[in-house]
């Protein structure tokens, strides 16, 4: 559970390494944790408010934030360092001296409607059986927790959500399905996620959301972003079918 009232002052802690000539990765640790996710998210915002010449974009992951930049712009910038990697690395290390206010009330949670009807929850029975629960208990547990988006990856808009209750954890399918519908909600190990596009996939599928998780016609095509807080809400088959703008 994410404590919404907690507010602390701490400092950033990371090491840097070059991913490529035009990307530097900041490593905040080596295990999945709320604290690290909070640091990554907060540093990402700090960097977007204090970017450097040549800065392009960032990619968040479980324990890393990767910063992409234009090498030639960094080269001709006033940043200090023997190489472009050093110039950017020095800049980021300087920026990390800033202490940050960890305020977890900034973002309102996002509620995602999911239809857990057997028509969509292909593996709901299996997940229940693995965990010695009833199907309704699985749904109840899945809709009770607060989740955090740790990472977007795999396909455009695919959000890896952490914070799932261990009682419904399930291994991946031994053989991935050749095609899953867009919106399929799945479980893999201790994670849950939503397939934004019709793609192959190996997660245990427990339901489907009527929301478009990825849409190239939106300014922000991905519905979820790294750092977002998410809850699931169970909807009926009728509600699913009547969902506007499907």
């Amino acid at each position: 559970m994410i404590d919404k009232k907690q507010e602390t002052t701490s400092s950033y802690s990371f090491q840097t390494y070059a991913l490529s000539e035009q990307a530097i990765t900041l490593e905040f640790g080596n295990e999945i944790s709320e604290e690290i996710a909070e640091q990554i998210n907060s540093f990402k915002e700090l960097l977007s408010e204090n970017s450097f010449p040549g800065f392009k974009t960032t990619v968040s992951a479980y324990t890393t934030l990767t910063v992409f930049y234009n090498l030639m712009e960094v080269l001709t910038s006033g940043l200090v360092g023997a190489t472009c990697f050093e110039k950017v690395s020095n800049y980021l290390h300087q920026l990390k001296q800033t202490t940050y206010q960890s305020h977890r009330i900034s973002k309102p949670g996002i509620t995602i409607p999911v239809c857990y009807h057997e028509k969509f929850g292909f593996d709901l029975q299996e997940v229940a059986k693995i965990n010695k629960l009833t199907v309704n208990e699985v749904i109840q547990i899945h809709t009770s927790a607060h989740y955090r988006v740790f990472m977007i990856g795999f396909t455009p808009g695919f959000a890896y959500l952490g914070g799932m209750d261990h009682r419904i954890a399930s291994p991946r399918k031994s053989t991935p399905r050749a095609s899953l519908p867009a919106g399929a909600v799945g479980i893999a190990g201790n994670q849950t996620g939503i397939y934004p596009l019709k793609t192959p996939g190996g997660w245990q599928i427990i339901g489907q959301t009527p929301l478009k998780m990825f849409d190239i016609h939106r300014d922000q095509p991905s519905f979820l972003n790294a750092g977002d807080e998410v809850k699931f809400k169970s909807i009926s088959l009728d509600e699913f079918n009547d969902w506007p703008c499907r």
Binding site: K56, T57, T58, V59, F68, P156, G157, F158, F214, P221
Partner: peptide, 10 residues
């Protein structure tokens, strides 16, 4: 397309 890497777009 660089700007959408953060949203999982290659």
């Amino acid at each position: 397309r660089y700007p959408y890497l953060s949203q999982g777009v290659p």
